[in-house]
Design a binder for these strands. Structure first.
Lengths: 339, 339
DNA sequence: CTGAAAGCGCTTACAG
DNA sequence: CTGAAAGCGCTTACAG
C-alpha cells in the first residue's frame, strides 16, 4: 500500500472513514457551500482522527495553479534586499488559509538571472513572481504574459508590470539639498559603474538627480569628484581614498547606497579625514547599518516596499488585478552624525 | 485544449511530435539507458522544437518526492542567519541537473515554529528539511522519521539528527582567555535570558564556558556583573548602561552575539565609557557588522556552516546517508579594536 | 446535496 | 528497446 516513503492518509482514506465519496471530502476541504452540515462534521471528524493533511502537490497539479510564490533576488546578502524580503515574507505567510510558500531564487551572476526566470515561470510551480531589483527584458515579459503568470516588480521599473519603486532622481536631489543646506560646495559622488552587467540604474538615477539639483543651485557635480565602481564596501573605500588624495578634495560625499557610504567612511578614516568636520557623508537606503554607524542617509521604506509588492502580487494572483500600476514610495532624509 | 492558464506543451505533445510514446519521452528526459540513440535524438529535437519544459509538480506527484528543500529559519533578518542561509543557497543551486528549489519558512514567533514544521513535513512538497537555530522536539523527529523525511540541523544539536554545530562552551572559554590575557579581572556578561520561548541555548552555553574559564584562572563571573535580556541591540544597550552605572563597573564585557555587542558598544558610548580604554568588548559570530565597527569577536564560520549543512542534507536525500553525524566547526578569536 | 468519472502531467512496472 | 496502462492525490463538471 504505502509505496514511496510513508505517505500519510489520502482523501480516499478520509472518505472511507467518513462514509462519503472523495469528491465530498474535497468539497469540505475547499469550503464548498454545497455540502450539508452533518456531512461536513463527519468529514471533519475523519480528518482529525486520521490526522489527514492535504497534499499540496496533487492540489497544484489538479488545479493548474501553485500555492507558492517565486521571489527572485540579486545578492541575497545585501542588507537592502534582505530588508525588502522580510516585508515580503511577513506578508506572504499571513495570506489566505495557509498563506503562500516562498520559493527563493538568488541571482549572484547575470547569467543566473535568465535561468531563474525560466525555471520559475515555466515549471508552473509558482502562482506568481516577485522580481526584486533586477531589470527585466521585454521578451521575458512576453513569456510571462503568454503563461498568464502574474508578476510584480520591486525596485525595478517597467511600464508593462505592476511595480513598487522609489523616485531615485528625487532621492539624489534630496541628498544634494541636504548637503547644500549644510554649506558644502565641493561635493563628491561615489556610486556604481554607469553601465553594469545587471543593468542596475538606481545609482545613476540618484547621481543624475544629485547633479541636477546642484546645478539648479548654481553649483555643479564636478566630473573630477565622481568615482564609480562595484556596489560594495571595499571598492567604495578605495574610490574614496582616491577622492581624498586630490589636491582639493571634496568636503562632502554622496554615496549611492549605505553600503558604499560605509566604505566611504572607512576611506575617510584611512585618510585621516574627520567626519563630518573634514568631510560630510550621506548615503542612501537607511539599512540597519546606517543607524548603527550613525550615517546620515536618504531613507526608503525597504520593509514596507516588500509588503506592498507582496500585496500587489497577491491581488494579481487572487483577483486577477494586474494593471501595471506604479506605487512610488516616499523618501526622507534621515540626519545623523555624518553630516 | 489549453484549459487553465496557457500551459505549455506536455510530454504527450512531445511524444506525438517525435512519433513515440509518452513513456519513451519520459525515459529520455530521465536519462534512462533503455532508449536507443536515434530515438533519443528525435525526442530531444521535439523537445527543442516545442520548447518543452517538464512540469515539476507532476513529476513530484508521480515520484512521490519533491525537488525542493525546506529551510526553516528564525528571525529572517538576523545577520548570522542570513549569512548561514547564503551558504545554503549557494550550495543548493549548484546541485544536480537543476539543483533544488528552496522553500523558505520564517519563524518570527514560537508558535509559528510548529506550523512551519508540520507544513513542510506533511505536505510532502519538500525532499528534505534544513532547520536553522531552532531546537527541535522528539515528537517532531518522530514525525519526520515516520515520513522518512531527511532532516539536517544547523546551529542546533540533537543526537538523532545530522547537524552542523559549533562548540559554544569552548567559544565562551576563548572569550575569557582573550580578556584575561588582556589583563582584565572585573568582567561582565550580556546575553539572552537563560530560558526563552524558543529554547535557544547558545547564549547560556557561551556564558557557561566563559564562567568556567574565568574560574579556572582563579577569577570568576560575578553574578552581579551579568545581565540578561532579549537577543537584540536595544536591549543589550540598556543592560550595558545598568552594568556601567554600578559603583564598580566591569572593565570588560563579553556579549553573547555580535548584535548584542553592538548594543554594548552603544551603551558604553552613552555612558561616556571609552572602548577599549575604559571597557573592552568582545562579541560572538563575526557577522559583517563586526568588521564594520571593528569589533573583536569569536568567529564562527557562518557561511560555511550553511554549505556544510546543505551538503549533509543533499547526501541524506540522494544517497540515503542519514547517520546522525555531528560536524563541529572551528572557532577563532578575531581581534579588532574593541579589546 | 452527493457520487462516479475523467483529468491534471508525469513515471514505471509489465508485456512484448 | 518501446508502448499501453495504471497510478500519484487531488478537483470539478456532469448526472442524479
Amino acid at each position: 500500500m504505502v509505496s514511496h516513503r510513508g505517505r500519510g492518509p489520502t482523501i480516499r482514506d478520509v472518505a472511507r472513514r467518513a462514509g462519503v465519496s472523495a469528491a465530498t471530502v474535497s468539497r469540505v476541504l475547499n469550503d464548498s457551500p454545497l455540502v450539508v452540515e452533518p456531512t461536513r462534521a463527519r468529514v471533519r471528524a475523519a480528518v482529525d482522527e486520521l490526522g489527514y493533511r492535504m497534499n499540496a502537490t496533487a492540489r497544484t497539479l489538479s488545479l493548474g495553479r501553485a500555492t507558492a510564490v517565486g521571489v527572485v533576488v540579486p545578492f541575497f546578502t545585501t542588507h537592502s534586499v534582505i530588508e525588502r524580503l522580510r516585508g515580503v515574507v511577513a506578508r506572504l505567510s499571513g495570506y489566505g488559509q495557509r498563506g503562500y510558500d516562498l520559493l527563493l531564487f538568488d541571482v549572484e551572476a547575470p547569467a543566473q538571472r535568465a535561468d531563474a526566470m525560466r525555471d520559475l515561470a515555466d515549471r508552473n510551480r509558482v502562482a506568481g513572481l516577485l522580481i526584486v531589483s533586477l531589470p527585466i527584458f521585454d521578451a521575458e515579459i512576453d513569456a510571462l504574459q503568454r503563461d498568464e503568470l502574474p508578476a510584480v516588480l520591486l525596485d525595478v521599473r517597467h511600464p508593462r508590470l505592476p511595480r513598487v519603486v522609489v523616485d531615485n532622481v528625487r532621492g539624489g536631489e534630496l541628498a544634494a539639498e541636504h548637503l547644500l543646506a549644510k554649506g558644502h560646495s565641493r561635493i563628491g559622488f561615489v556610486g556604481d559603474h554607469p553601465t553594469n552587467a545587471y543593468g542596475f540604474t538606481s545609482s545613476e538615477d540618484r547621481r543624475r538627480g544629485f547633479g541636477a539639483a546642484l546645478e539648479r543651485a548654481g553649483n555643479r557635480l564636478d566630473p573630477a569628484l565622481q568615482r564609480f565602481g562595484l556596489a560594495d564596501r571595499e571598492e567604495a573605500e578605495v574610490l574614496t581614498r582616491s577622492l581624498l588624495g586630490r589636491s582639493s578634495p571634496p568636503t562632502a560625499i554622496f554615496a549611492a547606497s549605505d553600503l558604499q557610504a560605509i566604505g566611504v567612511l572607512k576611506g575617510c578614516e584611512a585618510m585621516g579625514a574627520r567626519v563630518p568636520e573634514d568631510v560630510a557623508v550621506i548615503g542612501f537606503d537607511d539599512v540597519d547599518l546606517a543607524e548603527i554607524v550613525g550615517l546620515t542617509t536618504i531613507r526608503q521604506p525597504l520593509r514596507e516596499s516588500g509588503e506592498q509588492a507582496a500585496d500587489l502580487l497577491i491581488a494579481a494572483i487572487e483577483d486577477g488585478v494586474d494593471d501595471p500600476v506604479e506605487e512610488v514610495q516616499q523618501l526622507t532624509v534621515v540626519e545623523r552624525r555624518t553630516t
